[in-house]
């Protein structure tokens, strides 16, 4: 009987931990995914899948630690999977929506448009490295852990992403 109560308490505590994480990170994760995939509606769906996976994971194993890094990792994987599916379906290089009339107000600033234009030229791995670090605030070591790679690889990806972003900004300035 004691075991039963302990398990029930552990499950309850784990769910409370998930709910705390949801409240704290749902906006951050959704915005991160939106930048990754370039579509708010898709980002909502993918983010929902992230938290659903979190609830399921805690339901299966209440003892398993659930960290923000796990949420970002799952969100990144979901976004990369989505982008790959989208590429396969279209059979052409991904072109994100360039019709700015359908963009939200906060997507229409010059900085946002430059960033989005650069991101659409980049492989998903470089996008995730850039967004996890300079956008979400993780260090290259933390991002490497999330992405399952080395810190040097993350820095290299950030470097290439930065070069693409700079090219976009130069293009806009010149013409």
């Amino acid at each position: 009987m004691d075991d039963f109560f302990q398990i029930a308490q552990a499950e309850s505590a784990a769910k409370a931990r998930v709910e705390t994480l949801v409240r704290e990170y749902q906006t951050k994760i959704a915005r991160y995914v939106r930048r990754m995939v370039g579509d708010a509606e898709v980002a909502l769906d993918l983010t929902q899948d992230v938290f659903l996976a979190a609830y399921r994971m805690v339901g299966r194993d209440p003892e398993r630690p659930l960290t923000p890094g796990w949420l970002y990792k799952t969100a990144t994987n979901n976004a990369i999977s989505y982008l790959r599916r989208k590429r396969i379906v279209r059979m052409v290089p991904l072109e994100r929506d360039t019709d700015t009339r359908s963009w939200r107000i906060d997507e229409q600033s010059a900085a946002s448009m430059d960033l989005q234009a650069a991101l659409q030229r980049l492989p998903a791995e470089q996008v995730s490295a850039l967004m996890l670090t300079s956008y979400s605030g993780y260090t290259s070591h933390e991002a490497a852990e999330i992405l399952g790679t080395t810190p040097d690889a993350v820095r290299q990806r950030v470097c290439r992403a930065m070069r693409a972003l700079r090219a976009v900004m130069v293009e806009r300035r010149d013409g």
């Binding site: 959704a30 909502l44 929902q48 939200r104 600033s109 900085a111 946002s112 430059d114 930065m162 900004m169």
Partner: peptide, 19 residues
């Protein structure tokens, strides 16, 4: 160039409620 990313993040107003 990198400040563009930070500026974009700071300008965002979208508060979704995915749950």
């Amino acid at each position: 160039v990198m400040s563009t990313v930070g500026r974009t993040r700071d300008e965002e107003t979208w508060i979704p409620d995915p749950v």
